[in-house]
C-alpha cells in the first residue's frame, strides 16, 4: 500500500481543530502553550460551544491567545483575568467563560483576583499554564519558581531565605469552598495530552452545573526561559517540576481527593 492510498478523506483520524484560527502561533518551538491552546479549542469544538464561549486572555506569552482561539475573546490587564471573567459570566450566565493565564499572571500580580474568584465560586473555567517562570519578559523568577531553579533574576538558583518559597496555588485554591474541580495536568507526552484533554472537557462541562469554579493547571515548559531544547526541557520538567507539582486531580465534584 502506498501513502497515496492511505491519505484519503475517509481514512482521516486526526486533524487540527477548526476552532483554532489559521494564524501561526507566536510561541517558541516546542512550547506547551500551543498544545494547551489546541486542547481548549478541541474541547470547545467537541462540545459544540464555539458560539457560546467567551475567553479572557491574560498578559504573558499568551497575550495574543485571542488571535489564535476562534471564539469571542477579550484581553484583561495583567493578573485581572478572573475578575473580568466574573463580570462576563455574571452578565452572560448562559455562556461558557474561561480564562487562559500563566503563572506570573495568575499567581503573582493576579493572586488576589484568582483567590477571590475561586472563593466566590464563580462558574468559570481557569486554564493555568505553570512554567515556573515569567516567559514573556525574559525568564525572571515567578512565585512558582522551584527552589534551586535558575532564572534570569536568580542566576544562582532560587533560595528560600532571600526569595521565599514556591507557591502551590492550585493546592491552595482547592481548599476554598468555591472550587468544584481542581486538577494538575501536563501536555508533554501523548498520554498526558489525552488526560489533560479529558480534564479540560470536564472543566468546561462543569459550567452547566453552576456548582463553582473549575481550575486546570498545566505544568508546562518554557524551554527558551529555561535555556534548553524542547526535548530536554520536557525531561527536566519531569525530573524537577513534577516532584513538586505532582500531576493528578486534587478536587473532584467539590470533594478533595488529594491533600
Amino acid at each position: 500500500m502506498e501513502l497515496k492510498d492511505i491519505i484519503k478523506p475517509e481514512n482521516l483520524v486526526y486533524k487540527r481543530t477548526e476552532c483554532l484560527t489559521d494564524k501561526v502561533l507566536s510561541y517558541c518551538p516546542g512550547c506547551g502553550h500551543g498544545t494547551a491552546h489546541r486542547l481548549v479549542m478541541e474541547t470547545i469544538e467537541e462540545l459544540g460551544i464555539q458560539s457560546e464561549t467567551i475567553g479572557v486572555a491574560s498578559v504573558g506569552c499568551s497575550v495574543l491567545s485571542y488571535d489564535f482561539m476562534d471564539v469571542d475573546m477579550t484581553g484583561a490587564a495583567h493578573g485581572r483575568a478572573t475578575a473580568v471573567a466574573t463580570g462576563i459570566k455574571r452578565c452572560n450566565p448562559e455562556k461558557y467563560v474561561f480564562t487562559y493565564q500563566g503563572d506570573g499572571d495568575l499567581a503573582a500580580i493576579g493572586t488576589a483576583e484568582t483567590i477571590h474568584a475561586c472563593n466566590r465560586g464563580e462558574n468559570i473555567t481557569i486554564i493555568f499554564i505553570n512554567n515556573g517562570i515569567y516567559g514573556m519578559t525574559g525568564g525572571q523568577m515567578a512565585p512558582t519558581t522551584l527552589l534551586g531553579m535558575k532564572s534570569s533574576t536568580t542566576p544562582y538558583g532560587r533560595e528560600s531565605a532571600l526569595m521565599g518559597n514556591p507557591i502551590k496555588i492550585t493546592e491552595l485554591v482547592a481548599q476554598l469552598p468555591g472550587t468544584y474541580f481542581v486538577t494538575r495536568q501536563s501536555v508533554h507526552t501523548p498520554a498526558n495530552v489525552r488526560k489533560a484533554k479529558k480534564a479540560i472537557m470536564k472543566a468546561f462541562d462543569n459550567q452547566k452545573l453552576k456548582k463553582g469554579l473549575s481550575f486546570v493547571e498545566i505544568v508546562s515548559n518554557c524551554n527558551s526561559g529555561w535555556k534548553m531544547t524542547p526535548v530536554t526541557a520536557n525531561k527536566w520538567m519531569e525530573d524537577n517540576m513534577f516532584p513538586f507539582y505532582p500531576l493528578g486531580d486534587i478536587k473532584v465534584d467539590g470533594e478533595l481527593v488529594k491533600k
Binding site: 492511505i6 481514512n11 486533524k15 483554532l20 510561541y27 516546542g30 512550547c31 500551543g34
Partner: peptide, 24 residues
C-alpha cells in the same frame, strides 16, 4: 513511512498543529 501505524501520537503532542494523520 512503512512503519507508521497512524496512532496519532505525533499529532497529539505537536504544539503547532502541524500534522494530519490518516489510518487504514
Amino acid at each position: 513511512p512503512g512503519d507508521c501505524t497512524g496512532c496519532t501520537n505525533c499529532a497529539v503532542v505537536c504544539p503547532d498543529g502541524v500534522l494530519t494523520v490518516y489510518r487504514v
